[in-house]
Design a protein around this nucleic acid. Sequence first.
DNA 1: AACTACATTGTTTGCGATAACATAAATGAT
DNA 2: ATCATTTATGTTATCGCAAACAATGTAGTT
Lengths: 342, 342
Amino acid sequence: MTSNHPGHVSMHDVAVAAGVSSQTVSRVANGGELVRPETRKKVIDAMHQMGYRPNFAARALKRGQFKAIGVALFDILSTGNIRALEGITREASARGYATTLTMLNKKTTKSLAEAVERMKTLPIDGIIVILEKMLPDITTYVPADDLPVTIITSAKTTTMSTIDEDQYRCSFLVVDYFLERGHKNVHFISGPRDSVASQFRLQGWKDALAEHGITPPRHFVGDWTADSGYEAGKALAQMDECTAIYAGNDFMANGAIQALEDAGKKVPEDVSVIGVDDSLKDVIPSLTLTSVRLDFTSVGRRALAETVRAIESEDILHPTRVLLPGKVIERSSVSTLNGSES
Amino acid sequence: MTSNHPGHVSMHDVAVAAGVSSQTVSRVANGGELVRPETRKKVIDAMHQMGYRPNFAARALKRGQFKAIGVALFDILSTGNIRALEGITREASARGYATTLTMLNKKTTKSLAEAVERMKTLPIDGIIVILEKMLPDITTYVPADDLPVTIITSAKTTTMSTIDEDQYRCSFLVVDYFLERGHKNVHFISGPRDSVASQFRLQGWKDALAEHGITPPRHFVGDWTADSGYEAGKALAQMDECTAIYAGNDFMANGAIQALEDAGKKVPEDVSVIGVDDSLKDVIPSLTLTSVRLDFTSVGRRALAETVRAIESEDILHPTRVLLPGKVIERSSVSTLNGSES
DNA sequence: AACTACATTGTTTGCGATAACATAAATGAT
DNA sequence: ATCATTTATGTTATCGCAAACAATGTAGTT
């Protein structure tokens, strides 16, 4: 070892051991063309024997590329974000990219901008931001153009590529599902106001009902927890005209169901309920809750694919906007009412 | 820009613009000592104006250090693993380290060894493996000595540092909690056999009972899901002597409770239940389930701290083994029996 | 004035890998 | 046999940064 980094075996070391030039070692290391089989074998043997591993920094310095993507997220404990992260990591690994994680704290556009700047000093070629929370002024943030940035959010912006579940259409899925089964109206328990997802679903719910000439009733605002769903459910149980409840996630749906049953209403006989996330399969035995499954893993995969596309493309690409549709997973928390049209 | 990496501004570029040598720029960039305030200002102005950011690869090549930790995990969807990952990432960020993620697929020691080898080509200075699943021959795997490896597992090995929740003592916590409240025996619904956590908890449960001269009853083996807990609960409901159930996680506990209630037994009046993970707070309204909270976030933090310690220490450290105690979060799924000693 | 001590800046060098070019050996064509 | 072509290998230069060293300047001391 001639290096000043103790313990590291360089190409030159291998070259000396194999009796060739370091360029030949380089060729062998990179799936070399034009190396005689015997030479190759000599080099490979020397590599193994000396425990050679290419130095990432040197390679990156020469190539100007890291083969790595930085991922920034605000909240790692939410189901959707983790699934997205999983999708990103798996797709990245399949494409030979590594994934570097950064946790963000404050949910402001300024902190996002700072985080992106900080990430640019990291060994990465592109950035994916998982932005569940609403940043009202996200549209004003224009990233520097030297590193592709993809954002997982439903918020609209024309300066970066975005991708997400189609939160807006998710509400149409649910509303139509209820209406097709004879329900006359759909009550909504939304997530917190600062969630992008919530805002789009709220609008979608209103629009979906409006499309059928139905006036949306007052909606409830929860905080994603079962307890907040329970509160809403308690109030909804008093409203006799309420036959269909659309909850922003399964936790709140579960809370609402509990409240309904505590108030003597049966699900789905008296009131039908649909949640979102399909997250309770393992948690509740013989689960009956019908739920919209949003495929966040795919969102992650697509986000990564888009980022890599931008990295590997020569010229600057137009920002794209992709929205993936959800899917109703049918169980038995929805009943069909008499006089149904379908 | 003189570089062949289009868009990149190098120290030299800044140096020319500021009318100094690139070494002076370097000094300013690294919290420079010995630079005259005016010179520093000139340089900083030039940096900002030109949008200079240090090149990570070059810096790493020179320093022989990446300031990054690789994290390998088999399963990103389990609560414990995510929390551990969160702890690692936050602690890393606080210490100026980045976190690079790798997903493993097959749960064999060989695949672990391969993954570690592959990770060594990444820009990282140390490796943390989150190893929830049992690898029977983990003790035989000796990592190469050029990169510190810390493993999050309860399995014992003398070749690497390990850290985990004290799964074994977790059972003592639960058993003692029940016995102190007058229960004469404790039934156990364990997780799957290939889980390290399960194995240690099973042994702990047996030993804790034995310490009080109690013969452990037949235990049930679940798969972490509520449905498997329900099955066990159905059987346990038939056993009149069963007053206390220790479930390997909250999902199975929840399933068991459902089964007990379906069989006409009340919780906690007839049967008391304790789960592990404290993971249902947001999921079930007015949660009553008493549960052991394992602080996986701390495990992650400690794992990172240990890895960094090994990296930054000059000489090779002895592998350490750390086990963090859990804590019973009291709610109301446990009743005190008549004739209790305490 | 001569000298020391230190503050400030510049120059040289090399980290490890590889692109670009140069050279040498082997093969084929006429 | 001679020259063109291909194949196989070596040489040089460089990516951007920072350690080590060198060179200057400036202030304080006697």
